[in-house]
Amino acid sequence: MLTAHPGLPEFDYIKPKTLAEASAFLAEHSKDARIFVGGTDVFVRMRDGFWKEKYLVDVKGLEGMKSVSFDPRAGLTIGAAVNMNQIAESAEVKAHYPLLAEAAHSVASFQLRSRATIAGNICNASPAGDTIGAGMVFGGSLSVHGVGGFRREPLDGFFLGPGRTQLQAGDVVTAVHLPLPPKGAAGKYIKLGRNNIGDLAIIGVTALGWRDGETPSGYRFRIALASVAPVPLVPVAAEKILAEKPITDAVIAEAANAAMEAATPIDDVRGSARYRKLMVRNLTKQAVAEVWGRIQ
């Protein structure tokens, strides 16, 4: 039985002045401190009584957290406190990573997107995270400040399970990096919710495709699936089919079937495993076909 409380439980609000201070505090209170930026997940879980931290550490005031920058050689850097609306509206993101803008725009409501961040979406490691797929198909990574200083964490391998990641006590994600997209790439995010806008994904399909002279098919696709496994799922077999076989409608259908086979969803209040698997097939097919139509 859900017993949400009228308000938030008691905690102390901590606002560190430097990253070093933040990491030290978080490491020292590894059991009872939690980092937050937008708070859209943290507050809800605390109000529901799932999380009971004594300290909430607000890191969004730290240097560099609020900027978006695009470098034509290195790609995109999104500060960890940049909100989803800024991403969805950013001219540079829309120009070079429209897929990411699309995914960011699909999150919840405008008001929540004013607070929610891509870094937060990634760190929460919900299998349903809308923007995680974009991060993965672009081969993104995170800048992480820990007690030992800065390091990079690739998103590939970052997710360990629902809510579980490679992050350690004291770690503060400061930015999300996306490398330059492959030349001529096109992408698509299809989110299936229960109503038109604002729902969590029953499933989500992110697809990115581009011409690639090194593959037998002449193309390469990256696909990521949301809400169909304990972690955001890359259906490798499907990607392989699209790289190896000359692309036709039938090959796209075959790849979509492979994506369905890879998915291991559960039954929950948002949808059944059976439906989710079928939707992985149908929407992977749709997403790949649309991308294929744009890159041929």
Binding site: M1, L2, N195, N196, I197, G198, L200, V269
Partner: peptide, 17 residues
């Protein structure tokens, strides 16, 4: 037991519907 006692999982029509 009501398993969807919140707006997250009890969806009602919005402007978009």
């Amino acid at each position: 037991v009501v398993t969807n006692p919140s707006f997250v999982d009890y969806r009602i029509a919005t402007t978009a519907d």
